[in-house]
């Protein structure tokens, strides 16, 4: 397998949290195998305190498995994992009180109302309240933060899918966590809900200093939310960096399309200007159409996923190019 390209991260976020504190998440050599099937084959990354990191990858890439290991819901086959300085497999309840998990719920607590459920779940965090960081989050405040004030006293069974997901986010936040895990948080959101959610993530990170690790297969989302993107495919991180840095990496490969004598041509090149100059010199007036498209993050992503996915696909992808 090709060497993993390292992308310099030009826009590093300021280090929040106490100076000298370790990363919120530290993963080294994480492996996960079910029988002979290897889901994760050596994953390394950090999430710094106060950072928003997005784990991006196609379905089945191992995103959910990674998050579940970090949440302490699953034991890894090998590797070392530290979440807030603790191995999740050994995390006690005080540790658990410091992290928030946004679950993709389904139909639990149908007879409860959002207000009652949040009040109830929040009660578990009361013993962990300190003068510096009060727990849990005040319910009214949280309801308005996620935009559920109007539905606060409706039965959860009657909430729409989007409203339920807001409630899921609120449940993950009720303990005012230092670190928040979100697995595909916006699946099933309409565009407005998605935008509201993105604003919420920014607020959490800016105002509360919450470190956030989220998974998505939506590129736009990763680009909008994350300080740093990790591309996970085929059980390993194939690239990481800010959206801008990742795009720059492959920005060279652009696509030139033109039409000559009613026939369409496509050419991928790293050197747009010399190529177009030659094209014009060669064909001149015979060209009836010309289009140059610079690769964006989506192309970057697709290219990387194809390159690293499985051997036969990789072969095909290269032939196609």
């Amino acid at each position: 397998m090709a060497a993993v390209p390292e992308f310099p991260d030009s826009a590093e976020p300021p280090q929040l949290g106490p100076p000298g504190a370790g990363p919120a998440v530290r993963v080294r050599g994480l492996r996960m195998a079910y029988g002979t099937h290897e889901v994760l084959s050596g994953v390394d990354f950090d999430v710094r305190q106060g950072e928003v990191v997005c784990l991006l990858g196609p379905n089945g890439a191992g995103k959910t498995t990674t998050i579940e290991v970090l949440e302490g819901f699953r034991l890894p086959s090998a590797g070392s994992v530290e979440v807030l300085g603790v191995d999740p497999a050994r995390g006690d309840d005080a540790w658990r009180a410091r992290i928030g998990v946004v679950l993709q719920s389904w139909r639990d607590h149908p007879r409860w109302t959002p207000r009652r459920l949040l009040g109830y779940l929040g009660g578990y965090y009361e013993p962990y309240s300190t003068p510096e960081r009060t727990h849990p989050w005040e319910v009214e405040d949280l309801l308005s933060t996620v935009g559920l004030t109007e539905e606060a006293d409706r039965k959860i069974a009657t909430l729409s899918g989007g409203r339920r997901r807001r409630l899921d986010v609120a449940v993950g936040l009720i303990g005012r966590p230092e670190l928040l895990f979100l697995d595909e948080p916006t699946a099933g959101f309409d565009p407005q809900a998605r935008r509201d959610f993105h604003d919420l993530v920014h607020r959490l990170s800016d105002l509360e200093g919450t470190s956030i690790l989220l998974t998505t297969h939506d590129l736009g989302e990763a680009e909008r939310l994350a300080d740093r993107i990790l591309i996970l495919t085929d059980g390993r991180i194939v690239a990481h960096g800010s959206a801008a840095a990742l795009t720059r990496q492959v920005a060279g490969t652009s696509e030139v399309r033109w039409v000559r004598d009613g026939e369409q041509f496509v050419h991928a090149t790293d050197e747009i200007v010399p190529f177009v100059r030659r094209l014009l010199e060669q064909h001149g007036d015979e060209l009836t159409d010309l289009e140059v498209r610079r690769a964006d993050l989506e192309d970057t992503y697709i290219a990387m996923v194809q390159r690293f996915e499985s051997r036969p696909q990789r072969h095909l992808a290269e032939v196609a190019r």
């Binding site: 819901f73 005080a94 658990r96 998990v101 993709q104 719920s105 639990d108 303990g175």
Partner: peptide, 12 residues
Amino acid sequence: DGTLLRHKALPH
């Protein structure tokens, strides 16, 4: 339905 999992994510 995830009720149990929600509780697993809570302290105690």
